[in-house]
Design a protein around this nucleic acid. Structure first.
Lengths: 291, 291
DNA sequence: TCCAAAATTTCATATAACGGAATTAAGTCA
DNA sequence: TGACTTAATTCCGTTATATGAAATTTTGGA
């Protein structure tokens, strides 16, 4: 008799899986191994010990050991030289970098980003929606270092946190938006931002004006603007955003920044093939997520 | 009786694996599944059909199908909406993005890159060595769009191709360098650049002056400079490079660009913990590579 | 609408994955 | 440095599970 595996891909923090042991029975060997890979990839970049990997995954050390041998043989994982700890390999990074294409949208967005960065001389972010999250696919720096919620390329934030991310959330269809809100409220609170009322107010404003302007307080004196990229089906599949000094988004400049962003968002949307099925982020993944 | 699996991770091109079928027997189910993952990740971003995946991997469709179900359940792979084709998921990208830390060096390098980009107003690349390749871990754009050999972040080039990549190769210990050259010559020729004599000449020059200045001809009028980042053990673990208009590397500016790059390379090297075992790229991976 | 091709499921079989125990290797602390 | 603790690796009998061929259902094109 098998359990119905419920897996929350929201975070790749090994600790999260510690309580998973009981549900492990019934996982195919492959899924167990992939769990190991996730643990290694999500763990300390300096490497994790076999014992801890096995413990976190809830399997015996023999099993973990054998699987890790295979993961190494296939180049997904490597051992820190002079030690036994496992960490993800660069080959793994290289392999997955292609997945950041997300069906091709990244290449479409790149020239847009470069134009924006040149025009505005600020840092530009490109986010796409992925389930309950927004993922940073690309970024072009301006003259000031900006710390964003998503962090680096490949980083993700819950929908609603940050300008681009909020822009996407605000333009989702009602029902879907409601579901995302319900799911993300605890995650947002965890990260110490916004209560539900604040979020709903921000969404209302964003929806009304079609863009987001927040001084998030992540770093004092920093602010940003985000606009959604809306595809032919009316779905907010992505967002463009600008991060800069708050003083550079004052009343005299803000309107033109918004206008330029919106124009480029439309350019980008126009490039999306309406028949390219590859750009939707269904809630199908819900089935994997703890309700 | 098992075959000794010989696997070339040099390229993730599915076609490469077509002739692998015979050796597949004896692969663990996990390794077969990882092969499938590699095929999906390395294939058309718009997705690949089950039949082709199975064919490329050299296993039955049933087997491929079951494995892909697991890969989907674990969020590594997804199906294109409205179709059956498989493609790598964004979750996979997000997960692997952390592997780009390569043990922490990426964060160390980021401020260096930002400083360089600000100081020089050109595009800056950060490469690390990985076996026979250099992998682009980060990049900060200048005002002109630059096409590099590595392409995007996450891209890789054979050691020897491109300024940073050549800078690394030129500073390897003799024996290792020789081995890399032998291995890479065909790959370099494949890509239409340099013969062996040309490569050796370029290496000699680079080694002599401690930096690389090439007008690669990738795009007419473009040029670049690369310097190695040499760790406490004297190993060229990484490289910094600049890509810009050839006219911006004329005799008046070139020396100062080189000086600034070398200074930052030393700053970066100084930040590398000599006991941090995580930064060497051993030839251990050789055992996986066809001799 | 129909049809060929692809995807999925079924099933009997063989095989490879499993964990506990034994062995070897690696850290650690005095 | 040497003794000791902890982790990594190997062994092995058992059992679960991965396997491919064939049957069935679903798809995607004409």
């Amino acid at each position: 008799m098998k359990f119905w595996m419920i897996n929350d891909h929201t975070d790749f923090i090994p600790g999260l899986y510690e309580s998973m042991t009981d549900q492990d029975r019934g996982l195919s060997s492959l899924r167990r191994a992939l769990t190991l890979l996730r643990i290694v990839a999500g763990g300390d970049p300096a490497g994790i010990r076999l014992k801890d990997i096995a413990g976190t995954a809830g399997c015996s050390q023999s099993t973990a050991h054998r699987a890790l041998q295979d993961l190494m043989a296939e180049g997904f994982v490597e051992q820190v030289e002079g030690g036994k700890r496992y960490r993800p390999s660069l080959d793994f990074f290289v392999l997955a970098a292609r997945a950041g294409q997300a069906g091709g949208i990244r290449d479409l967005a790149r020239p847009v980003l470069l134009r924006l960065a040149t025009t505005l001389s600020d840092t530009i972010f490109f986010l796409v929606r992925n389930g309950y999250d927004a993922v940073c696919l690309d970024r072009v720096e301006g003259p000031f270092p900006i710390r964003s919620f998503t962090g680096d390329i490949g980083g993700k934030v819950p929908l609603g946190l940050g300008q681009g991310s909020l822009a996407i959330l605000a333009h989702l269809p009602e029902a879907e938006q409601e579901e995302v809100i319900r799911f993300n409220i605890p995650r947002l609170i965890d990260r110490g931002f916004l209560d539900e009322a604040g979020l709903r107010a921000a969404i209302a404003t964003a929806r009304e004006q079609g863009w987001v302007n927040l001084n998030t307080g992540l770093i004092p004196g920093m602010a940003g603007v985000g606009v959604p990229v809306i595809d032919a089906q009316g779905r907010p599949v992505a967002a463009l955003s600008v991060g800069t000094l708050a003083e550079r988004l004052g009343p005299e400049r803000l309107p033109s920044v918004v206008r330029i962003l919106k124009t480029e968002a439309m350019n980008l949307a126009a490039g999306l093939n309406p028949f390219d099925v590859s750009l939707r982020y269904p809630l199908r993944s819900l089935s994997n997520i703890r309700p």
